[in-house]
Amino acid sequence: MAGVLDSVNQRTQLVGENRLELLLFRLNGKQLYGINVFKVKEVLQCPQLTMLPKSSPVVRGVANIRGGTIPILDMNMATGKGPLEDLSNAFVIITEYNMKVQGFLVQMVDRIVNMNWADIHPPPRGTGMDHYLTAVTRVDDQLVEIIDVEKILAEVAPQSDEVSPDLITDEVTTHALSQKVLVADDSAVARKQVQRCLENIGVEVVVKNDGRQALEYLKELVADGSDINSHLLMMISDIEMPEMDGYTLTTEVRADPCLAGLYIVLHTSLSGVFNKAMVEKVGANDFIAKFNPDDLAGSVIKRFQIETQ
């Protein structure tokens, strides 16, 4: 399986074309699940695990991989089901999210498929494990469920969304009055984290679940021909989203004369393989890796400073 991932770093041409590649895997049963290849560093047979006392039950142990100690999370348990049992035949998907490396224990790795984000859809309410889904799609007429990994990580190792008090000065709170920020992210957990963080500063937050929703909202704001900057201070967008990714959203915004001046920050958990050249190519103003409240607050404060120059 490692061989099929050798070219992961050569696949960045997909980014910016509203495309992605999914690594498909199974847990207990025939249901297919998917994870973006850009999040994957390596796939390997489950190594020997060392138990960690007082850790979450979801963490089945740690493994020494290429000189580093990596926590291994049971994906089946993390989504509310029982533990995977046959570890001798199981696989570990080594990933990098939010500047941290962790492994996800799965029963079987299937294959990699090339997809269009337009074919990735928000999960229907009440379907399957919708509480842990960020999107769904179909491959060969079979449903593929894309798990909200950020939700899993937030439950296993919660992160604070509080902004350092020294960043919230009187000047910042004054600038924040009557300012509105658009946030686009497909993860419910990520949306809440960002919203709470920005509300700590004092700005009003409008949230949308994907790039298409965000673009439709933006177009509605300027339907009367007004300048987008009279409505919004900025937009903070995830990159990986169903229907329309953040790169394509940014490209669409820059192509619309009424929207082109919008200040855009791309906010992503793709920290390990983040393509700065692509961010510049599509015309985003800035990018930050998820999730650091002070970094996020700093991006808004930076926008305040630019606006007042």
Rank of each mutant, 00 (worst) to 15 (best):
P53C: 04
G80L: 06
P57M: 09
N89F: 06
S178T: 11
G128A: 08
L84M: 06
E171S: 13
A118K: 10
D185Y: 10
L133W: 01
I65D: 11
S56D: 11
N89E: 12
K100M: 14
M75E: 02
P158H: 10
M129Y: 10
E171C: 07
P71W: 09
A154T: 08
A190D: 14
A90L: 02
T127V: 13
V194F: 09
W117G: 02
I112V: 11
T79V: 14
D185W: 10
T79A: 04
M77F: 05
T169E: 06
A157E: 15
N64V: 15
R111K: 11
H121C: 08
T95H: 01
I93P: 03
N98Q: 14
S160K: 08
A157V: 15
G103N: 06
L73Q: 10
K100I: 14
P122G: 01
Q142N: 05
I93L: 05
Q179H: 10
G80A: 06
I94F: 00
S187E: 07
P124G: 01
P57V: 11
V189L: 14
Q107P: 09
V189Y: 14
P124D: 02
I94G: 00
E145C: 00
V92D: 01
E85S: 15
N116T: 05
M77N: 03
N114M: 06
D166Q: 12
E96G: 03
V109A: 08
D185P: 09
L73A: 12
D119L: 01
E171R: 13
A135Q: 03
A118R: 11
Q193C: 13
N98C: 12
T69M: 15
V101P: 05
V62Y: 09
L182T: 10
K192Q: 13
Q193Y: 14
E155K: 12
A78H: 04
P57W: 09
T174D: 14
D130W: 09
M115F: 03
K151P: 00
V92C: 03
K192A: 10
E155D: 14
A78I: 01
V58D: 15
T134K: 02
